[in-house]
Design a protein around this nucleic acid. Sequence first.
DNA 1: GCATGTGAAAATCTTCACAGCA
DNA 2: TGCTGTGAAGATTTTCACATGC
Lengths: 207, 207
Amino acid sequence: MNYRKIPDETIRRLPIYLRDLTGFSQQGYKNISSKELSGHLGINPWQIRKDFSCFGAFGTCGVGYDVDKLIQQIKKILKLDTIHKAALVGVGNLGSAVLAYPGFVMYGFDIVAAFDNDPKKIGKKINKITIEDVSKIPSLKNKDVRIGIITVPRQASQQTADALVSAGVTGILNFSPCRIKVPKKVKVITINIALDLARLPYYMPAR
Amino acid sequence: MNYRKIPDETIRRLPIYLRDLTGFSQQGYKNISSKELSGHLGINPWQIRKDFSCFGAFGTCGVGYDVDKLIQQIKKILKLDTIHKAALVGVGNLGSAVLAYPGFVMYGFDIVAAFDNDPKKIGKKINKITIEDVSKIPSLKNKDVRIGIITVPRQASQQTADALVSAGVTGILNFSPCRIKVPKKVKVITINIALDLARLPYYMPAR
DNA sequence: GCATGTGAAAATCTTCACAGCA
DNA sequence: TGCTGTGAAGATTTTCACATGC
């Protein structure tokens, strides 16, 4: 195998594999074939094999893949083999939902701080985290927090991003419905629910 | 121009264009060039022109595109030129956030019903919508609701999907962290926040 | 001059077919 | 026989270059 860069589309699929493989591991599976995985995920077996082949030969012919080895390898590729501390800004409806979201833990994320600018919310606790004033964002520098989650209204998103970047964050999960500008070093992934919903009618059958 | 199918990737970008064009329209812009749009969106000008060229020539050379015509055309392509009624199932943290989310209105979505299985929540009102028991989902048949939003825990997602499909829904926005099986006619778009977050460390610079 | 629209080239991603190995 | 791993073919998407029109 040539060592090529792993395709972005493969990277997009890796967390999906990881999620289901973790499930299989907990059920006691030792090995799993691309065909079995395919049935679960709705991804073609050859696509799965191609994806896995990007990072070396892990399967045993006639048997399948070693589930736990695969999990370790995917975690290593995605750099999910260490705990990542994250901070959330904007504890409104969405922010609260994200704070309570159980899905983060399994990938090794730990939300260690939450900020808001509403005096009524400051000091309150959600999930053992005390909400602090946004002016305290710079304190993240001392906490080795590299990931920021932005769940503030659109108008405040850019300044929030700026504050997070200044505090040393290099990865941002942005829930604001707009693009934010950051230095090249910083990676932003934007999640916009409305954009996904807006595609739905196009794919729905005509009545 | 050959009448080809519009590429899926173009469809994915159309809602983004629509969002920003709507903003420009409200600011009084009559025309806009691909270059101006490019600056806002972070998408290359030639990509933008290629996308727009899929559905006919709309631009004026030397001037740019007619903002309002473009908006109308994109809405037509995405079938967003009519109001779409939607129903939400699962009024927990995430469900409440989605109900309160302002982003849906601008694309013409109207959440007309919400369901939960928790007796404490039934009868409560959120955003003028009274929460009903999940057993009432079949009543959607009479309301011409074609879109379902699933924000229930993983275990309940498949049965929720089944109930929605039986009630006539043909498009589902699924927030559950698993795949749901539906008839081919039904389109599902799955949003999984954790999957997006899981990609972030890979793209972040090494410390 | 300026900005669109489009064929052609390049890059990327998916599908296939089959050799190779337990 | 059953399943992996991979080169090659096919499909899709992005980028480019430039002719065309106001």
